[in-house]
Design a binder for these strands. Structure first.
Lengths: 199, 199, 199, 199
DNA sequence: TATGAATGAGATTTCATTCAT
DNA sequence: CATGAATGAAATCTCATTCAT
């Protein structure tokens, strides 16, 4: 029973945050979304904070999986291929629109004042940077690689942020295109490109 | 008296958000920061929402002024110069560290569910994009210019976001460098560059 | 559980109004009278207004029942009998003294500025008038009947009002006697009387 | 200055009660009606309670004057004439509609829990009863006179109450007619009548 | 005399949590 | 395992009153 309930409640949490935001996502609203009573949340997660932490962890795991799956599927071990997979994974992000996106952004803001969330946040940020940095390092000198990794990480997060905030639906295709193209520019003096067409 | 108190309370709001985050920034805490009683907030701003809106408006105005001042100070009317000024202004952002940064991020998350903040947010986003787009348009074909503007806007926001979230102090110099360099890459087939040295 | 709590809280509301008046009847005082916590009031009635409305509705229902019961118990279908039953019912008024009386008067004053209460008030007023009017109409010409109904309705309310305001306990017997006697005078040219003795 | 301000503030109090009821008649609203600052109320009346008491006293004085003036103007010293003047005075009541009426009713309810107002209320009630009783006593045996006074007092208050509560404007003419006619019925075995026509 | 800035107490309401069933 | 009744703390807002100017 437990894993089912936990997943139900995590999904309900994202639905509630999507609906009214983290500040108004009360335990009762979450419970209503999950079709259970409010009391059960304390039972399974020890309290609201526990549920929020579990939800953030879930989102981060989804992202991590999305990237890892694409990298595992690569037939080509080139830096470009890996970086491309990272970009794809970040804009898959399980469900780049709706509940997940708003929950993600809410946690970003919240994490600045909650050590538990902050740690999760930090680990995730570093992983993105470290992965990119490692791949760039295979083609660029150290300083260049570091800057490239910082720039591409910022680009990915920025595209994602602006996409989440914009009233229109997230245009993941456009985001992927801009990110890939930025990558190409960073590696412009090297052979192949990620973007087939420069429309 | 009123303008003094309003400014005091807006500053106190940012201080409180910096300290504990938007969710825990109660009017009593804000009042304590300002050294006044809690009741006065409703008196001057009609309620907490009024204060938050005024605070966000204040931050946006600061940003707008920072950009406008730099553009007015230009001796060179070239697109590169204007874009450079926009970048500088966004990373001045009055006080890119501490209170203002956290407040900004908190509003980003909050704006998704509060129409009043959302409108402010939207206007600001569009302005950054429109300004960049206009300058790029002077050097690039339409589609290219649009993508360049989208990319640079995302880069700016992404650098800012990662800077605000990182536990270390915001490295505005590095952010400016990466943004300027991205700009140079976008305009690579044109004459002058923004970045003097490509360290 | 719900119906029990609701009744408890309605009773407690009347007790609190009896004790300190509507203006000072805070939800904490009401809750203390009911022996529950203050928060539960919002839970069951949605807020203080909901509780007050429910309380007024309860009082009106009690009055309505008191009249209806007496009229159902009549063996005699004459207008005099019905009017007598209406008078009796109005001075039974469940509990013509103490809590109910003060609550009633408080609502009278309050209803002038709260549309919800006003509607309840209005329906009740019209019913008393309509019932009396109908019965008088069986014995008197139209204009006469209307005036008689207006007069007797005013007399009933006036006796009740003065009884509630007087520091002494409400003398329901005297009130009934005066009302019945007024009725006899209105029907003086017709056969039977309601008042056995004209002391 | 003082008498002017006091009168201004008493008028403003009635206007505020007319507008939103006693419960919502805040000092600031009253002050706004009077076109002065809120602080001045405490200065002239010692506080809100003082202002309310002064206002009630003012209304009672107006009523008292209205009755006294009519009785002084009588050329006929008969009981019927005096009773008629009392009825007229009570339905003049300075301004039987609007502010005064609502203020009056608000004080009725409030007086049950405020000793100061209660005393004023009590004195006023007794005076109406005593005056009527004295006049009836000149024509009727003691018991009869007492009941007649009680009945007419109740009738007057009841007509007034229903008039104040009804959504339509107070029909003072109809009220006077019903009261005079009731008086005639009480004195039916004596010569002259108060009501010219028995429509 | 009059203002209006400011306070602090109090009222309502919301909500996470606990607990008996 | 699950519910929902109930609490108590906290948050916002209102308002009468005070006081310096």
């Amino acid at each position: 029973m437990e894993p089912i309930r936990r997943q139900q409640l995590i999904d309900a949490t994202m639905a509630a945050i999507d609906e009214v935001g983290l500040g108004e996502a009360t335990i009762m609203r979450i419970a209503r979304h999950a079709g259970v009573s409010a009391g059960i949340i304390s039972h399974y997660f020890g309290g609201k904070d526990g549920l929020l932490e579990a939800t953030m962890r879930h989102i981060l795991t989804d992202l991590s999986n999305a990237v890892a799956a694409r990298r595992r599927a690569l037939t080509d071990d080139s830096p470009r291929a890996h970086i491309g997979a990272i970009i794809e994974g970040n804009f898959d992000r399980s469900q780049v629109t709706g509940p997940a996106a708003k929950t993600w952004l809410a946690f970003w803001a919240s994490s600045m004042h909650k050590p538990t969330l902050q740690r999760l946040q930090y680990v995730n940020d570093r992983r993105l940077y470290a992965n990119l940095s490692y791949q760039f390092r295979r083609l660029l000198p150290c300083d260049e690689a570091r800057n490239a990794a910082r720039g591409l990480a910022a680009m990915i997060d920025g595209l994602w942020l602006r996409g989440a905030l914009a009233p229109e639906a997230f245009d993941a295709e456009a985001a992927r295109y801009l990110a890939r193209r930025y990558c190409d520019q960073l590696l412009v003096h090297h052979d192949h490109t990620l973007t087939a067409t420069h429309t």
